[in-house]
Amino acid sequence: MLAGGFAAGAFGSLLGLGGGVLIVPMLTLGFDLPLREAFGVSLACVVATSAAAAATYLERRVADLRLAMRLELFTATGAVAGGLLAFALDEGLLAGLFALVLVYVAATMVRGAVGPAAREATPEATSPPTKPRSLPLGAAGSTFGGVVSGLLGIGGGVIIVPLVHLGLGLPLRVATATSTLMVAVTAAASGIVYLVRGGIDPYVLGPTAVGVFVGAVLGSRSAERIDLRILRLLFIAVLVYTAAQMVRRAIAPT
């Protein structure tokens, strides 16, 4: 589990993804954990990695703190609703929805939007925040991102980054940094719902979170030395295979 978490953290940081889309399949398909328990552990792991990354972005003043706080009100609302909804829905349906997210992430990576975005978004210099275009769009998109995060145990960056960059018109680097800030609060808001509903197992969380954290730190330091094109192609294949396994689980839940 420690090694699996390490791999999820390292691959996630190399490819510019939060850990959720990797941790959930690792725990459910690899260790046969119930989906909701995997979602709860995944959310806590996402908080750990995004909080550490957010510290760097804040220190370098790349993230737009005030915009993040405004949008967090909506992502947190969606995340709480999503977290509560996850305990009301059938596990097969959750597996099917998770498979859809995996396919969406794979499609995004095929277009080359996720990997290069993360590389480009590496905070190297201070950049002043810019004015967002449409806050109502931001509010609606953030609420949706929060629901997806809470419902499926992911950080929601796959929705929030395009929303802030393409929808609100902020530069990609600022959008990624601002999204990282928001992901920590979003995942914490739903993670607490999972915690109080008994959806987090401490014996699973410990090794997974420590592995993810160490993997993410080492992965981000190795990004410059690794050919990410091959890694990305390999990862797309893994995502598609995992999505197929999730569909199988959706049809015949364990």
Binding site: A44, V47, A48, A51, V185, P202, Y203, A209
Partner: peptide, 24 residues
């Protein structure tokens, strides 16, 4: 007991962004 440290770690992780909000 490991559960004590693991639960405290879980609470610390999930409480961190909330502490950030509070300080903000």
């Amino acid at each position: 007991h490991p559960a004590g440290y693991l639960w405290l770690g879980a609470i610390a992780i999930l409480g961190l962004p909330i502490a950030r909000l509070g300080l903000s």
